[in-house]
Simulated scan of single mutants.
Amino acid sequence: MNISTTRSDVALWFAGEAPDRLVHDGVRYRVTDMPTKLYDEPMFTHELITHPPRQFVGWRFQATDGVGTTHMFEVLRDAAGRWVLGRVYD
C-alpha cells in the first residue's frame, strides 16, 4: 500500500451532507463508499472529563475515477475554509 501525504487543494461536491464527488489533479472521482467524518480531539484533558470536545476536521472516503482506479482519500478543511487533500491511500 502506498500512502501519499499532501496539502493540495481539491474541489469537493456534496450530496446531502456527505461528499459525493472530488476533483484532484484534474481527475474527477465519484465517492464509492460511505464517507467517515474525521475529528480532532485534544491531546490533554483533565481526568474528570469523560467526553472531551471533538472538532470536525474533514472526511475519509473511497472514490473511483472514470477508468476504474480507486483510492482512499482524506480531505481536510484548512484554516481559510478550503478543502485540501491530506492523504491518499493506493
Rank of each mutant, 00 (worst) to 15 (best):
Y89T: 09
G86F: 00
A63W: 02
H46V: 15
D40C: 12
R21Y: 06
I49A: 03
T32N: 11
A63Y: 05
M1E: 12
L85Q: 03
G81P: 00
F14N: 00
P42F: 03
D65G: 05
E74W: 07
N2Q: 04
V88L: 02
V75H: 05
D33V: 01
M43R: 06
Y89V: 13
I49H: 01
G68K: 08
V10W: 09
T50A: 08
R77A: 06
H24K: 04
V10Y: 08
P52Q: 14
R7P: 02
D20F: 07
G81N: 00
Y29D: 01
A63S: 01
R87S: 10
G68F: 03
R82F: 13
G68P: 08
T69V: 08
E47P: 13
G58C: 10
V75N: 07
L76P: 03
R7Y: 09
E41D: 08
H51V: 15
R30I: 03
P42E: 14
G26W: 00
P19T: 07
D78H: 03
H71D: 06
V23S: 14
T70V: 10
F56S: 01
G26V: 00
D25N: 13
V57F: 10
F73S: 02
P35D: 03
M1H: 09
F61Q: 00
T50E: 05
E17S: 10
V23K: 11
L48W: 11
D90T: 13
S4L: 05
V75M: 07
W59V: 04
F61G: 01
V84K: 03
H71L: 11
R7W: 01
V67L: 15
Q62H: 14
K37L: 15
M34Q: 12
F73Y: 06
I3G: 02
M43F: 14
G66M: 13
K37A: 15
G86N: 06
L22T: 05
V10P: 08
Y39G: 11
T45R: 04
